[in-house]
Simulated scan of single mutants.
Amino acid sequence: MTAPDPTVQAMIEGRRADTGRRRRRVLTALTQAAKDGSDISVAAIARRAGVDRTFLYRHRDLLGQIHARAAEPPTTPGGRGPAVSRASLQADLLAADARTARLAAQVRRLEARLSEALGE
């Protein structure tokens, strides 16, 4: 096996160093966004870190960290505990939708009974 060309080796090392710098910028942007309550999404973090979104999609570990941090409930100002999270709002919406369906079915049953009682 022959030794790699020094020019090629220098380009490989330069690429690795650039990737490392970009990864650090993404992690810093993610930490800062969580700290100041900014939007945490792939586009927002990529924009804040100065990288392309495809960089994040090529680095699945970073993408996973962004998704995990986005799923965490944000803290309220003053550190009084977690605020409402997207998951809790979705759960509330599903519960409200189920209750609406039950109430609509009950209204239909009551309307049918009323119609029978009135002889219609």
Score class of each variant (00 low, 15 high):
93 L>P: 04
20 G>K: 08
120 E>A: 09
26 V>F: 03
64 G>S: 14
12 I>A: 11
71 A>I: 06
33 A>S: 08
100 T>L: 13
114 L>C: 03
14 G>F: 02
16 R>W: 06
54 T>Q: 12
37 G>H: 08
15 R>M: 00
86 R>F: 07
53 R>P: 02
38 S>P: 01
27 L>C: 08
62 L>S: 01
116 E>I: 05
92 D>I: 06
97 D>R: 15
14 G>Q: 09
21 R>Y: 10
93 L>Q: 13
78 G>W: 15
9 Q>N: 09
70 A>R: 05
36 D>Y: 14
116 E>Q: 13
56 L>A: 03
107 V>N: 01
66 I>E: 00
93 L>G: 06
113 R>K: 11
109 R>V: 00
99 R>P: 02
45 I>H: 09
62 L>Y: 01
108 R>I: 06
57 Y>S: 11
102 R>A: 03
101 A>G: 15
74 P>D: 11
110 L>H: 06
21 R>V: 05
28 T>E: 04
117 A>C: 05
104 A>S: 13
72 E>G: 06
43 A>S: 14
16 R>S: 05
113 R>P: 00
21 R>K: 06
101 A>W: 11
31 T>A: 13
51 V>W: 11
36 D>Q: 11
102 R>K: 15
91 A>R: 15
64 G>P: 04
45 I>F: 00
33 A>F: 00
2 T>V: 12
1 M>I: 06
21 R>P: 02
35 K>C: 06
17 A>I: 09
36 D>T: 14
52 D>H: 10
74 P>S: 10
114 L>I: 01
107 V>Y: 06
86 R>C: 03
100 T>P: 03
6 P>D: 09
88 S>N: 10
104 A>I: 01
88 S>V: 07
65 Q>F: 01
109 R>D: 04
40 I>D: 01
33 A>H: 00
36 D>A: 13
93 L>F: 14
112 A>C: 03
23 R>L: 03
117 A>E: 04
43 A>V: 08
13 E>L: 05
104 A>K: 12
106 Q>F: 07
11 M>Q: 15
33 A>W: 00
73 P>A: 09
57 Y>C: 07
108 R>Y: 05
65 Q>S: 02
113 R>N: 05
26 V>I: 09
63 L>F: 08
15 R>E: 00
85 S>T: 04
104 A>D: 13
97 D>I: 04
69 R>T: 07
21 R>H: 11
54 T>W: 11
8 V>K: 07
37 G>N: 08
21 R>S: 12
17 A>E: 15
95 A>K: 15
41 S>R: 09
96 A>E: 07
66 I>N: 02
103 L>F: 12
68 A>P: 04
71 A>M: 09
119 G>I: 05
37 G>E: 03
99 R>N: 10
111 E>A: 07
55 F>G: 12
112 A>Y: 02
82 P>C: 10
120 E>G: 04
